[in-house]
């Protein structure tokens, strides 16, 4: 049986793991909302600060699931496939890059390297030293059917886990939903019971949509 063993939401209003709210943005903070989450979770990863918002969301999502859904993620280095999606690709960063050459005719290479949506998967791969498959797709809205069948296909061919989700971030809106899907033995081994209240959710199209909708619509 495949389960979503951990998941994370980040919106403009809150940050939650397995549905439970961890943090809400402080209007008085001198830091960006994502930096507030980074500080809250006590993540130590200096590369985070050079990333664009999409890549930061990916790193936060994976680290929050590891820390607050208590998933060790000690997978083999080729054992994890990554699949992310959104609607407008890297448009927010594209706009910043365009402004860098439109306004002062000196395009910023540091911004340009983030003008691809799949950089989020590259940053997660670097963070975790994972050599598995990475995919980024563009779709009009979160499609639980797409993700469910991707997870099923990849776990059926031997993946230990699939991490993925929806990451649509622009000036108006932050929609981040990141999940960890793993095969779990159908009958729990008595020594290591799968707690009913551990937050894990059996994988299915309806279930995936339901947990997505806990904090996103």
């Amino acid at each position: 049986m495949i389960k979503i063993t951990g998941y994370c939401h980040i919106t403009d209003l809150l940050c939650a793991v397995n549905g439970k709210i961890l943090l809400q943005p402080s209007p008085d903070s001198e830091h960006s909302w994502f930096r507030q989450i980074y500080n809250f979770a006590d993540i130590q990863y200096p590369k985070f600060h050079k990333m664009d918002a999409l890549a930061q969301a990916g790193v936060l999502g994976v680290e929050l699931i590891r820390l607050f859904a208590a998933r060790p993620m000690d997978f083999q280095d080729e054992g994890v496939d990554l699949v992310f999606a959104n609607r407008y690709a890297s448009a927010a960063t594209d706009r910043r890059f365009q402004a860098s050459y439109a306004d002062h005719m000196s395009p910023s290479p540091a911004i340009f390297v983030y003008t691809l949506p799949n950089i989020i998967t590259g940053e997660i791969a670097i963070l975790k030293k994972w050599y598995g498959e990475n995919t980024f797709v563009v779709m009009p809205e979160f499609d639980p059917g797409f993700f469910t069948s991707y997870i099923q296909r990849h776990i059926a061919r031997g993946c230990e886990a699939v991490i993925g989700g929806w990451v649509q971030i622009d000036e108006e809106n932050t929609e981040v939903f990141i999940f960890l899907a793993e095969p779990i033995p159908a009958e729990p081994i008595p020594a290591e019971p799968i707690q009913a209240d551990d937050g894990a959710v059996r994988l299915g199209v309806r279930e995936l949509l339901e947990i997505y909708q806990q904090h996103l619509s």
Binding site: L82, Y114, T121, G122, A125, W130, Y131, E133
Partner: peptide, 11 residues
């Protein structure tokens, strides 16, 4: 076939 990330550098 398959794909594989270098897990090394983004650019």
């Amino acid at each position: 076939g398959y794909s594989s990330n270098d897990a090394n550098h983004i650019s």
